[in-house]
Amino acid sequence: MKIYDITLPIHPKMLHWGRKPEVEVVESLANGDASNVTRWRLGAHTGTHVDAPAHFVDGATPIDQVSLYSMIGPAIVADCTGVEGEVLPEHLEAAGVAGHRRVLLKTTNSAGPLKEPERAQTWVGVGPAASQWLVDHGVELIGTDYMTLEHHTRTDTWDSHHVLLNAGVLILENADLDEVPPGEYELVCLPAKLVDADGAFTRAVLITRD
């Protein structure tokens, strides 16, 4: 068995949308306390995380009620490293996405913008036409390798988020696929069970078995 950890490390200097995580030392052995204890202040969408339908749809399913079956099981890492700009339906078809319920798109983001400490000016995103294609083909979870699935030209309108989350498709963002070869895997993605939350940070791994 080989495990690929596709989770970004969480720390105060990490790539982050808006306010970065903060860490407070509550107790420490160095100060004579019985143990080391820290308190972290971070958002639900910190690092590698899952967007629940409630992120963009009032009254929709929050993260603690989404189906584990959508986040655990066979998945494809689709090679979209040749895509510039927005991922389109023809890119998904060429990458062999059809027939898969859990899809992770490996783009040039993984080796580029995802490795930078600050938000890039441009990155590869999933267009609304491709998002509708995913809905029409029964995809339950779509993963991408940047802070947001949206293309950088759509972060005012959030077109793809509306298409996907209104259809109940979960969105995994900030998946680090740099060291993961395209192909078929077993995905295990377990977001924190934050009650009634719009999303949650997650530990996500891809597994291959002999």
Rank of each mutant, 00 (worst) to 15 (best):
K2A: 06
L8A: 02
P12T: 01
K13G: 13
G18K: 03
G18D: 03
R19K: 10
P21L: 06
E22V: 09
V23S: 11
V25Q: 07
L29N: 10
A30F: 08
G32Y: 02
A34I: 00
N36T: 08
R39S: 14
R41M: 01
A44E: 10
A44I: 14
H45D: 11
H45A: 12
T46G: 03
H55M: 08
H55L: 05
F56Y: 14
V57H: 00
G59S: 05
A60N: 09
I63Q: 00
Q65I: 00
V66I: 14
S67I: 05
Y69G: 12
S70P: 13
S70D: 13
M71D: 04
G73R: 07
P74F: 11
P74E: 12
A75W: 02
I76H: 03
V77L: 11
A78W: 00
T81F: 04
E86C: 15
E86V: 11
V87W: 03
H91M: 00
H91E: 00
E93W: 07
A94R: 08
A94V: 11
A94G: 10
H100W: 12
R101F: 09
T107Y: 01
T107L: 04
A111V: 11
A111E: 11
G112W: 01
K115Q: 09
R119T: 06
A120F: 05
V124A: 00
V124K: 01
G125A: 03
G125M: 01
G125L: 09
V126Y: 03
V126T: 09
G127K: 04
A130N: 15
S131V: 01
L134S: 12
L134M: 13
D136K: 02
D136Y: 03
G138F: 04
G138N: 04
L141M: 12
G143Q: 07
M147T: 09
T148E: 06
L149W: 10
E150F: 03
E150K: 00
H151E: 11
H151P: 09
H152L: 15
T153Q: 05
T153A: 03
R154D: 13
D156W: 10
S160E: 12
S160T: 15
H161Q: 08
V163F: 13
L164V: 01
L165C: 14
N166V: 09
E173S: 15
D176F: 12
L177E: 09
P181K: 11
L187F: 08
L190G: 07
G199D: 06
V205E: 09
I207C: 12
